[in-house]
Simulated assay, not measured.
Amino acid sequence: MTPSSLAIGLPGLSNTVLQLFLVAVAVLVFAWGFERYRTNFSRTELAVATAISLGLLTVGVLPGIFGAIGGVLNVERRSLVVSLLANVAFAFLLLYALAMIRNNQLSISELTRQLAIRNVDGRAHDEPTVGVVIPAYNEAESVRGVVESLPGRVLGHRVEAIVVSDGSKDDTRAAAADADAIVTEHPINQGQGGALKTGFAIAQQHGADVVVTMDADGQHRAADLESLIEPILEDRADYVLGSRYLGEDDSGNSPTRRFGIRAFTWFINLVSKADVTDCTNGYRAIRGSRLDELTLTEERFSAPELIIEARKNGLRIEEVPVTIRSRDAGETKKPKLGYALGLTRTILVTVVR
């Protein structure tokens, strides 16, 4: 090989090495973002990592696009390389900053929940107990009626209402306290998933044999409580889910929402090999001694996460008929935009982690 041919070949070799380097960096950046999402549930970091990865892949796999742009703008190759390396460095700094922000958010969330838990007397009861956890956000008009509808005892167990006011701006906490519920407050809104985790911790501290979750808007009937906890007390199940499709659906949901519930239920059954009919129902009962086995990270869309975690950890699941009514007051807190995407994201992440 002559010096001239070697000189001609080197640029091609250099380009190939640079392209492989960019593809490798793109894969690493995406893997980092996905791992951050899988462990810390940071959607922002995943989105930024995905965008950066796609940009790097475009440069590495389709360099002609940038060459054409460079030709139009009269950009020299050296300038492009320097700019590229500078942008890669900036991208890593940006991802690092996002990671620090997310870590701080998680620390604040954990501190918020721990303060809420410590504000409640943590002594366990001497008698069998059913802890009914009721997450509430601006539900002052309905939460008192929900608490007062609960029986004092069910199937030989003391019933204890635990209301977690999740950063409410109205009189939710006072209304629940007036009904003699155990009440705690998140000073910062943590989402339904965060409120449930706080309620679960309080129920466990109080030695609850069975933990029930119930909405604060009046859609769930106290009359169905016995059928929810009976399979657990009879040792037939560890996780009992109420189903409006085995019972009655008087919620007034639109046809679109009813179709969505059916579709996501099918999807959860497909990916987790569950056999449920109503995946978004928040009326459920869980054996208290098995709560610690569930990895719960979701802040907003907790229903599918609970079902999939129960399946992954071998909890025996049973469904019972319940009646879902329309809200007693107020408006739904479910997001109008992104609800379907949020459920999909939660299902996929919970399955793969």
Rank of each mutant, 00 (worst) to 15 (best):
A285E: 07
R284A: 01
S302W: 05
T323Y: 12
V276S: 02
D278G: 10
E230L: 04
K273F: 14
L337W: 00
F267D: 10
L337N: 06
G342D: 01
G338L: 05
T323R: 09
A237K: 07
K333F: 07
D292E: 13
F259P: 00
R284T: 06
D292W: 03
L296W: 10
L241R: 11
E248D: 14
E298V: 07
T277A: 03
S243L: 02
G242D: 00
K336Q: 08
R316A: 15
L291V: 15
T295R: 13
R300T: 15
A310K: 05
P231I: 05
S326K: 09
E309T: 04
S302C: 01
F264R: 11
D328V: 12
R284W: 02
D249P: 15
K334C: 05
E331K: 15
Y239P: 00
E318R: 15
G242S: 02
G242N: 04
T280D: 12
C279G: 06
G282P: 14
D249Q: 14
T277M: 06
A329K: 09
I324W: 03
I232C: 03
I232E: 01
S251T: 15
K334N: 13
T295S: 12
R311F: 01
A303N: 06
T295W: 09
D235A: 11
A310S: 14
E309M: 04
V271K: 08
Y283F: 14
G282T: 10
S289Y: 00
D292T: 15
G242F: 03
V320I: 04
E298S: 11
K312G: 07
S251D: 11
S289T: 14
R287Q: 08
G282F: 10
P255W: 01
R325K: 12
G342Y: 02
E318L: 10
